[in-house]
Write a protein that binds this DNA or RNA. Structure first.
Lengths: 159, 159
DNA sequence: TCAAGATAGTTTCAGATGAAACTATCGTGT
DNA sequence: ACACGATAGTTTCATCTGAAACTATCTTGA
Protein backbone atom coordinates (compact mmCIF):
# COMPACT_ATOMS: atom_id res chain seq x y z
CA UNK A 1 0.00 0.00 0.00
CA UNK A 2 1.17 3.46 -0.88
CA UNK A 3 1.20 6.04 1.88
CA UNK A 4 -0.73 9.24 1.27
CA UNK A 5 2.32 11.33 1.94
CA UNK A 6 4.23 9.47 -0.68
CA UNK A 7 1.48 9.63 -3.26
CA UNK A 8 1.21 13.36 -2.82
CA UNK A 9 4.92 13.99 -2.71
CA UNK A 10 5.53 13.16 -6.35
CA UNK A 11 4.11 11.36 -9.32
CA UNK A 12 4.10 7.60 -9.02
CA UNK A 13 6.13 5.42 -11.24
CA UNK A 14 4.53 2.16 -12.14
CA UNK A 15 7.03 -0.05 -13.92
CA UNK A 16 4.26 -1.76 -15.88
CA UNK A 17 3.29 1.53 -17.45
CA UNK A 18 6.79 2.85 -17.98
CA UNK A 19 7.55 2.81 -21.70
CA UNK A 20 11.27 2.01 -21.54
CA UNK A 21 10.53 -0.93 -19.29
CA UNK A 22 7.72 -2.21 -21.47
CA UNK A 23 9.84 -1.93 -24.58
CA UNK A 24 12.66 -3.74 -22.87
CA UNK A 25 10.55 -6.63 -21.66
CA UNK A 26 8.78 -7.09 -24.97
CA UNK A 27 11.99 -6.87 -26.97
CA UNK A 28 13.79 -9.34 -24.74
CA UNK A 29 11.00 -11.85 -25.05
CA UNK A 30 10.91 -11.52 -28.80
CA UNK A 31 14.67 -11.67 -29.13
CA UNK A 32 14.95 -14.69 -26.88
CA UNK A 33 12.25 -16.56 -28.72
CA UNK A 34 13.92 -15.88 -32.02
CA UNK A 35 17.43 -16.51 -30.76
CA UNK A 36 16.29 -19.93 -29.62
CA UNK A 37 15.25 -20.81 -33.16
CA UNK A 38 18.37 -19.48 -34.84
CA UNK A 39 20.56 -21.14 -32.31
CA UNK A 40 18.87 -24.53 -32.34
CA UNK A 41 18.55 -24.85 -36.07
CA UNK A 42 21.59 -23.09 -37.37
CA UNK A 43 23.93 -22.52 -34.49
CA UNK A 44 23.68 -18.79 -35.03
CA UNK A 45 23.63 -16.00 -32.50
CA UNK A 46 21.61 -12.90 -33.26
CA UNK A 47 24.71 -10.83 -34.14
CA UNK A 48 25.80 -13.57 -36.51
CA UNK A 49 22.39 -13.75 -38.07
CA UNK A 50 22.34 -10.00 -38.58
CA UNK A 51 25.64 -10.11 -40.37
CA UNK A 52 24.37 -12.87 -42.63
CA UNK A 53 21.15 -10.96 -43.23
CA UNK A 54 22.92 -7.92 -44.64
CA UNK A 55 25.44 -10.00 -46.57
CA UNK A 56 22.57 -11.92 -48.10
CA UNK A 57 21.22 -8.74 -49.55
CA UNK A 58 24.36 -7.11 -50.74
CA UNK A 59 27.46 -9.15 -51.11
CA UNK A 60 30.93 -7.80 -50.66
CA UNK A 61 30.49 -5.36 -47.85
CA UNK A 62 33.30 -4.15 -45.65
CA UNK A 63 33.05 -4.77 -41.92
CA UNK A 64 32.32 -1.11 -41.42
CA UNK A 65 29.45 -1.23 -43.88
CA UNK A 66 28.08 -4.28 -42.10
CA UNK A 67 28.31 -2.42 -38.82
CA UNK A 68 26.37 0.51 -40.25
CA UNK A 69 23.60 -1.62 -41.63
CA UNK A 70 23.17 -3.81 -38.57
CA UNK A 71 23.46 -1.08 -35.93
CA UNK A 72 26.25 -3.10 -34.36
CA UNK A 73 29.66 -1.73 -33.48
CA UNK A 74 32.81 -2.83 -35.23
CA UNK A 75 33.91 -5.06 -32.37
CA UNK A 76 30.68 -7.00 -32.45
CA UNK A 77 30.93 -7.32 -36.19
CA UNK A 78 34.53 -8.47 -35.98
CA UNK A 79 33.63 -11.21 -33.56
CA UNK A 80 30.53 -12.34 -35.40
CA UNK A 81 32.46 -12.46 -38.66
CA UNK A 82 35.34 -14.38 -37.10
CA UNK A 83 32.91 -17.03 -35.92
CA UNK A 84 31.12 -17.16 -39.29
CA UNK A 85 34.38 -17.43 -41.20
CA UNK A 86 35.51 -20.25 -39.00
CA UNK A 87 32.40 -22.21 -39.87
CA UNK A 88 32.72 -21.41 -43.58
CA UNK A 89 29.56 -19.37 -43.79
CA UNK A 90 31.24 -16.13 -44.67
CA UNK A 91 34.41 -15.46 -46.54
CA UNK A 92 36.84 -12.62 -46.16
CA UNK A 93 38.72 -11.24 -49.15
CA UNK A 94 41.19 -8.41 -49.24
CA UNK A 95 40.07 -5.23 -50.91
CA UNK A 96 41.93 -4.44 -54.12
CA UNK A 97 42.29 -0.76 -53.43
CA UNK A 98 42.57 -0.50 -49.67
CA UNK A 99 44.78 -2.84 -47.69
CA UNK A 100 42.92 -2.18 -44.47
CA UNK A 101 39.55 -3.28 -45.79
CA UNK A 102 38.26 -6.82 -45.93
CA UNK A 103 35.40 -7.63 -48.29
CA UNK A 104 32.84 -9.93 -46.73
CA UNK A 105 30.44 -12.20 -48.55
CA UNK A 106 28.41 -15.34 -47.95
CA UNK A 107 29.95 -18.62 -49.02
CA UNK A 108 27.68 -21.02 -50.94
CA UNK A 109 27.15 -22.73 -47.65
CA UNK A 110 26.28 -19.43 -46.00
CA UNK A 111 23.95 -18.61 -48.85
CA UNK A 112 22.15 -21.90 -48.42
CA UNK A 113 21.58 -21.18 -44.76
CA UNK A 114 20.47 -17.67 -45.55
CA UNK A 115 17.92 -18.97 -48.01
CA UNK A 116 16.57 -21.24 -45.34
CA UNK A 117 16.46 -18.64 -42.63
CA UNK A 118 14.72 -15.84 -44.46
CA UNK A 119 11.36 -17.59 -44.68
CA UNK A 120 11.70 -18.68 -41.07
CA UNK A 121 12.46 -15.15 -39.94
CA UNK A 122 9.53 -13.77 -41.90
CA UNK A 123 7.33 -16.45 -40.45
CA UNK A 124 8.36 -15.64 -36.90
CA UNK A 125 7.60 -12.01 -37.55
CA UNK A 126 4.25 -12.93 -39.04
CA UNK A 127 3.36 -15.03 -36.01
CA UNK A 128 4.05 -12.09 -33.78
CA UNK A 129 2.21 -9.65 -36.00
CA UNK A 130 -0.80 -11.92 -36.15
CA UNK A 131 -1.84 -10.15 -32.97
CA UNK A 132 -2.45 -7.00 -35.01
CA UNK A 133 -4.69 -6.00 -37.86
CA UNK A 134 -3.01 -4.71 -41.01
CA UNK A 135 -3.95 -1.19 -40.03
CA UNK A 136 -2.45 -1.65 -36.61
CA UNK A 137 0.75 -2.97 -38.13
CA UNK A 138 1.14 0.14 -40.19
CA UNK A 139 0.42 2.26 -37.18
CA UNK A 140 2.99 0.38 -35.13
CA UNK A 141 5.55 0.79 -37.83
CA UNK A 142 4.91 4.52 -38.01
CA UNK A 143 5.07 4.90 -34.24
CA UNK A 144 8.33 3.00 -33.97
CA UNK A 145 9.69 5.16 -36.73
CA UNK A 146 8.77 8.30 -34.85
CA UNK A 147 10.30 7.07 -31.64
CA UNK A 148 13.46 5.97 -33.41
CA UNK A 149 13.75 9.35 -35.05
CA UNK A 150 13.26 11.02 -31.71
CA UNK A 151 15.86 8.98 -29.88
CA UNK A 152 18.49 9.24 -32.56
CA UNK A 153 17.83 12.96 -32.78
CA UNK A 154 18.92 13.22 -29.17
CA UNK A 155 22.64 12.78 -28.80
CA UNK A 156 21.86 11.64 -25.30
CA UNK A 157 18.54 12.24 -23.65
CA UNK A 158 18.95 15.69 -22.20
CA UNK A 159 17.44 16.38 -18.86
CA UNK B 1 22.29 -5.21 -56.33
CA UNK B 2 19.93 -8.13 -55.93
CA UNK B 3 19.94 -10.77 -58.62
CA UNK B 4 16.64 -11.59 -60.29
CA UNK B 5 16.94 -15.24 -59.44
CA UNK B 6 17.35 -14.41 -55.83
CA UNK B 7 14.51 -11.97 -55.74
CA UNK B 8 12.18 -14.49 -57.24
CA UNK B 9 13.36 -17.41 -55.18
CA UNK B 10 11.90 -16.13 -51.94
CA UNK B 11 10.62 -13.07 -50.17
CA UNK B 12 13.29 -10.57 -49.33
CA UNK B 13 14.22 -9.75 -45.83
CA UNK B 14 15.14 -6.18 -45.21
CA UNK B 15 16.55 -5.77 -41.74
CA UNK B 16 15.27 -2.21 -41.55
CA UNK B 17 11.71 -3.41 -41.95
CA UNK B 18 12.00 -6.47 -39.77
CA UNK B 19 10.05 -5.87 -36.58
CA UNK B 20 12.25 -7.82 -34.14
CA UNK B 21 15.26 -5.93 -35.40
CA UNK B 22 13.57 -2.56 -35.18
CA UNK B 23 12.34 -3.25 -31.69
CA UNK B 24 15.79 -4.33 -30.66
CA UNK B 25 17.56 -1.27 -32.03
CA UNK B 26 15.04 1.15 -30.58
CA UNK B 27 15.03 -0.54 -27.18
CA UNK B 28 18.80 -0.63 -26.99
CA UNK B 29 19.06 3.03 -27.78
CA UNK B 30 16.46 3.94 -25.20
CA UNK B 31 17.98 1.66 -22.58
CA UNK B 32 21.47 2.93 -23.17
CA UNK B 33 20.42 6.54 -22.99
CA UNK B 34 18.62 5.93 -19.73
CA UNK B 35 21.30 3.69 -18.28
CA UNK B 36 23.78 6.49 -18.84
CA UNK B 37 21.71 8.79 -16.65
CA UNK B 38 21.12 6.30 -13.88
CA UNK B 39 24.71 5.29 -13.87
CA UNK B 40 26.20 8.77 -13.94
CA UNK B 41 23.97 10.29 -11.36
CA UNK B 42 23.28 7.46 -8.99
CA UNK B 43 25.70 4.66 -9.79
CA UNK B 44 22.78 2.40 -10.61
CA UNK B 45 22.52 -0.25 -13.29
CA UNK B 46 19.15 -0.86 -14.87
CA UNK B 47 18.56 -4.07 -12.92
CA UNK B 48 19.35 -2.19 -9.71
CA UNK B 49 17.06 0.62 -10.66
CA UNK B 50 14.25 -1.82 -11.40
CA UNK B 51 14.60 -3.41 -8.01
CA UNK B 52 14.45 0.00 -6.38
CA UNK B 53 11.47 0.95 -8.49
CA UNK B 54 9.34 -1.93 -7.24
CA UNK B 55 10.56 -1.58 -3.67
CA UNK B 56 9.66 2.09 -3.78
CA UNK B 57 6.08 1.16 -4.48
CA UNK B 58 5.59 -1.72 -2.13
CA UNK B 59 8.05 -2.25 0.63
CA UNK B 60 8.89 -5.59 2.09
CA UNK B 61 8.87 -7.80 -0.95
CA UNK B 62 10.65 -11.11 -1.15
CA UNK B 63 13.29 -11.56 -3.84
CA UNK B 64 10.90 -13.79 -5.72
CA UNK B 65 8.21 -11.12 -5.69
CA UNK B 66 10.72 -8.58 -6.93
CA UNK B 67 11.66 -10.97 -9.72
CA UNK B 68 8.03 -11.35 -10.75
CA UNK B 69 7.37 -7.64 -10.85
CA UNK B 70 10.53 -6.71 -12.68
CA UNK B 71 10.52 -9.55 -15.20
CA UNK B 72 14.01 -10.42 -14.03
CA UNK B 73 15.13 -13.86 -12.96
CA UNK B 74 16.10 -14.68 -9.42
CA UNK B 75 19.81 -14.63 -10.18
CA UNK B 76 19.66 -11.12 -11.56
CA UNK B 77 17.62 -10.01 -8.57
CA UNK B 78 20.04 -11.64 -6.17
CA UNK B 79 22.96 -9.82 -7.71
CA UNK B 80 21.24 -6.47 -7.95
CA UNK B 81 20.09 -6.74 -4.34
CA UNK B 82 23.56 -7.74 -3.14
CA UNK B 83 24.99 -4.64 -4.73
CA UNK B 84 22.23 -2.41 -3.36
CA UNK B 85 22.58 -3.83 0.13
CA UNK B 86 26.29 -3.22 0.06
CA UNK B 87 25.72 0.43 -0.67
CA UNK B 88 23.01 0.70 1.99
CA UNK B 89 20.21 1.45 -0.40
CA UNK B 90 18.24 -1.67 0.34
CA UNK B 91 17.97 -3.69 3.48
CA UNK B 92 17.38 -7.37 3.89
CA UNK B 93 15.41 -8.74 6.82
CA UNK B 94 14.55 -12.31 7.61
CA UNK B 95 10.93 -13.33 7.22
CA UNK B 96 9.18 -14.21 10.47
CA UNK B 97 7.39 -17.21 9.09
CA UNK B 98 9.71 -18.63 6.46
CA UNK B 99 13.41 -18.97 7.09
CA UNK B 100 14.22 -19.13 3.40
CA UNK B 101 12.67 -15.79 2.60
CA UNK B 102 14.31 -12.41 2.92
CA UNK B 103 12.17 -9.32 3.08
CA UNK B 104 13.55 -6.46 1.04
CA UNK B 105 12.90 -2.78 1.50
CA UNK B 106 14.48 0.56 0.73
CA UNK B 107 16.60 2.13 3.42
CA UNK B 108 16.03 5.84 4.11
CA UNK B 109 18.98 6.46 1.86
CA UNK B 110 17.45 4.27 -0.83
CA UNK B 111 14.15 6.05 -0.44
CA UNK B 112 15.83 9.40 -0.91
CA UNK B 113 17.40 8.22 -4.14
CA UNK B 114 14.13 6.74 -5.28
CA UNK B 115 12.37 10.02 -4.68
CA UNK B 116 14.96 11.72 -6.81
CA UNK B 117 14.90 9.20 -9.62
CA UNK B 118 11.17 8.94 -10.17
CA UNK B 119 10.77 12.43 -11.61
CA UNK B 120 13.88 11.93 -13.71
CA UNK B 121 12.57 8.64 -15.08
CA UNK B 122 9.22 10.17 -15.87
CA UNK B 123 10.93 13.07 -17.52
CA UNK B 124 13.05 10.80 -19.70
CA UNK B 125 9.94 8.96 -20.75
CA UNK B 126 8.20 12.23 -21.49
CA UNK B 127 11.09 13.41 -23.63
CA UNK B 128 10.83 10.26 -25.68
CA UNK B 129 7.06 10.42 -25.90
CA UNK B 130 7.19 14.02 -27.00
CA UNK B 131 7.57 12.54 -30.47
CA UNK B 132 3.96 11.35 -30.27
CA UNK B 133 0.58 12.95 -29.88
CA UNK B 134 -1.53 11.85 -26.91
CA UNK B 135 -3.62 9.72 -29.23
CA UNK B 136 -0.55 8.08 -30.65
CA UNK B 137 0.72 7.34 -27.18
CA UNK B 138 -2.44 5.51 -26.33
CA UNK B 139 -2.26 3.64 -29.59
CA UNK B 140 1.33 2.68 -28.93
CA UNK B 141 0.46 1.48 -25.47
CA UNK B 142 -2.36 -0.64 -26.83
CA UNK B 143 -0.20 -2.10 -29.58
CA UNK B 144 2.61 -3.01 -27.20
CA UNK B 145 0.04 -4.60 -24.96
CA UNK B 146 -1.25 -6.74 -27.81
CA UNK B 147 2.21 -7.80 -28.83
CA UNK B 148 3.17 -8.61 -25.26
CA UNK B 149 0.05 -10.68 -24.88
CA UNK B 150 0.83 -12.49 -28.07
CA UNK B 151 4.41 -13.29 -27.21
CA UNK B 152 3.67 -14.46 -23.70
CA UNK B 153 0.84 -16.57 -25.04
CA UNK B 154 3.38 -18.47 -27.06
CA UNK B 155 5.48 -20.75 -24.90
CA UNK B 156 8.08 -20.38 -27.59
CA UNK B 157 7.28 -19.11 -31.02
CA UNK B 158 6.10 -22.21 -32.81
CA UNK B 159 7.03 -22.68 -36.38
C1' DT C 1 8.78 -38.51 12.37
C1' DC C 2 11.36 -38.44 8.71
C1' DA C 3 12.43 -39.13 3.68
C1' DA C 4 11.63 -36.92 -0.68
C1' DG C 5 10.65 -33.31 -3.29
C1' DA C 6 9.73 -28.31 -3.72
C1' DT C 7 11.08 -23.63 -3.03
C1' DA C 8 14.17 -19.33 -1.78
C1' DG C 9 18.15 -17.57 -2.64
C1' DT C 10 23.38 -17.69 -3.56
C1' DT C 11 27.51 -19.11 -5.77
C1' DT C 12 30.30 -20.92 -9.35
C1' DC C 13 32.02 -21.33 -13.87
C1' DA C 14 32.17 -20.52 -18.52
C1' DG C 15 30.94 -17.78 -22.32
C1' DA C 16 29.37 -13.00 -23.87
C1' DT C 17 30.19 -8.07 -23.97
C1' DG C 18 32.16 -3.24 -23.89
C1' DA C 19 35.86 -0.08 -23.59
C1' DA C 20 40.29 0.82 -24.50
C1' DA C 21 44.58 -0.35 -26.44
C1' DC C 22 46.75 -2.10 -30.34
C1' DT C 23 48.37 -3.16 -35.41
C1' DA C 24 48.29 -2.07 -39.96
C1' DT C 25 47.26 0.76 -43.68
C1' DC C 26 45.80 4.96 -45.77
C1' DG C 27 45.54 10.05 -46.83
C1' DT C 28 47.24 14.68 -46.26
C1' DG C 29 50.21 18.51 -45.86
C1' DT C 30 54.61 20.22 -45.98
C1' DA D 1 59.63 11.78 -49.13
C1' DC D 2 57.76 11.35 -44.83
C1' DA D 3 55.55 12.62 -40.39
C1' DC D 4 51.01 12.87 -38.55
C1' DG D 5 46.44 12.04 -37.92
C1' DA D 6 42.51 9.24 -39.48
C1' DT D 7 40.52 4.86 -40.47
C1' DA D 8 39.79 -0.56 -40.67
C1' DG D 9 39.78 -4.12 -38.03
C1' DT D 10 41.53 -7.15 -34.03
C1' DT D 11 42.84 -8.22 -29.42
C1' DT D 12 43.00 -7.68 -24.55
C1' DC D 13 41.16 -7.19 -20.13
C1' DA D 14 37.78 -6.53 -16.90
C1' DT D 15 33.08 -6.92 -16.18
C1' DC D 16 28.50 -8.83 -16.99
C1' DT D 17 25.44 -12.60 -17.76
C1' DG D 18 23.11 -17.25 -17.88
C1' DA D 19 22.85 -21.93 -16.70
C1' DA D 20 23.62 -25.18 -13.53
C1' DA D 21 25.03 -26.60 -9.09
C1' DC D 22 24.63 -25.69 -4.42
C1' DT D 23 22.81 -24.61 0.58
C1' DA D 24 19.19 -24.01 3.51
C1' DT D 25 14.55 -24.33 4.64
C1' DC D 26 9.95 -25.74 4.07
C1' DT D 27 6.03 -29.01 2.84
C1' DT D 28 4.00 -33.28 2.04
C1' DG D 29 2.86 -37.92 2.65
C1' DA D 30 3.74 -42.50 4.26
Amino acid sequence: MQSDAETLAHARLDLDRFLPYRLSVLTNRVSNAIARHYSERFGLSIPEWRVMAVLGQSASLSAREVAERTAMDKVQVSRAVASLVERRRVQRDGDDDDGRVTRLSLTPRGRAIYDEIVPLALHLEAVLLAALTPGEREMLSALLEKLSGRISGLRAIEV
